[in-house]
């Protein structure tokens, strides 16, 4: 008798236990339906700003202690800078520039326009802390070139792979039109004025006047920092976006794009979009202008 009732109760208890476990399992399942957070990968700490292989940056933690911001956040997938914590990190004043004829006189106040200097980033430039490029290009070790005639270069092919293919000004511009033959620490304009590697705009602007003006006005190029006119901004210099040696091939050198959006659950592919590709013809193409 007693055994029977105990068995019954045990059965009930077992059922209850199973139920509890069942609920537990169900709850676990319910949580799994909401996929577990993917582990956050360790942040990539090295990346480039605009041009791949040009302005390399390293992430530094807690540059803005107020919010615990790093100076930059790098993309996990493309090697590009993805977010700016401190827009003025590693910058110096842009240096003297003449006013231009504009409401804001070129939107320029020396102390409020800053740049990331180029010279500290140049490998060969920094091989000798005092003489810089002149360490080799002293007229003796490497003789000064006699003319600007195109020739193959044996050094610096990491910068210009094939000097005979160099194309700027549709072939009219050669290395020594911009690089100073007798002082390789500097660039040189067509009037023979020495220009610092930190101020390429003074050289580029000599031919590209409209772009230069628009750049000064803030409607060409890139700036970060404060948005108000006259506020402190970091200006991107010409060569931070364009490679002067290959600009005629690509205005901007193609980059790896950041990942596409994730398709929403329930959408198997993005085929609904491809119907608009030109191969499908007709409707998907840009309205033909010729028809009106």
């Amino acid at each position: 008798m007693k055994i029977g009732s105990i068995a019954k109760v045990i059965f009930s208890a077992a059922a209850t236990g199973a139920l509890i476990l069942g609920v537990g399992k169900f709850r676990t399942e319910a949580q799994q339906e909401q996929p577990a957070r993917p582990a956050v990968a360790a942040p990539v700490t090295d990346c480039f700003e605009s041009r791949e292989g040009y302005t390399a940056r390293s992430r530094v933690e807690n540059v803005v202690p107020e919010y615990g911001y790093p100076n930059i956040i790098c993309s996990q997938t493309t090697g590009g800078v993805l977010w700016w914590g401190d827009p003025y990190d590693e910058t110096i004043p842009i240096g003297d520039m003449p006013d231009i004829d504009d409401v804001t006189k070129g939107d320029y106040l020396t102390e409020d326009a800053v740049i990331k200097p180029r010279e500290p980033q140049l490998t060969y430039f920094n091989m000798d802390p005092d003489k810089h490029c002149v360490m080799c290009h002293d007229g003796m070790t490497v003789p000064f070139p006699k003319d600007k005639k195109p020739r193959l270069i044996t050094m610096h092919q990491d910068i210009v792979e094939d000097s005979m293919e160099l194309m700027h000004g549709e072939g009219a511009i050669w290395c020594l039109d911009c690089h100073n033959a007798t002082n390789r620490n500097t660039l040189i304009d067509h009037r023979g004025k020495e220009i610092s590697f930190n101020q390429p705009q003074k050289l580029c602007g000599k031919c590209h006047g409209v772009e230069y003006r628009h750049w000064r006005m803030g409607i060409h190029g890139k700036r970060i920092g404060s948005w108000n006119a006259g506020g402190k901004k970091r200006w991107w210099l010409c060569t931070e976006c364009h490679n002067p040696h290959t600009v005629q091939i690509n205005r901007f050198r193609p980059l790896k794009p950041e990942p596409a959006p994730v398709l929403p659950k329930g959408m198997k592919n993005a085929a609904h979009e491809s119907v608009h590709a030109p191969s499908a013809g007709g409707h998907g193409e840009a309205t033909p202008a010729a028809t009106h």
Partner: peptide, 14 residues
């Protein structure tokens, strides 16, 4: 419903 709703949101912008 969630899946359908997200898809529909997605297509709506197109």
């Amino acid at each position: 419903g969630l899946a359908n709703a997200s898809v529909s949101d997605e297509l709506q912008q197109d």
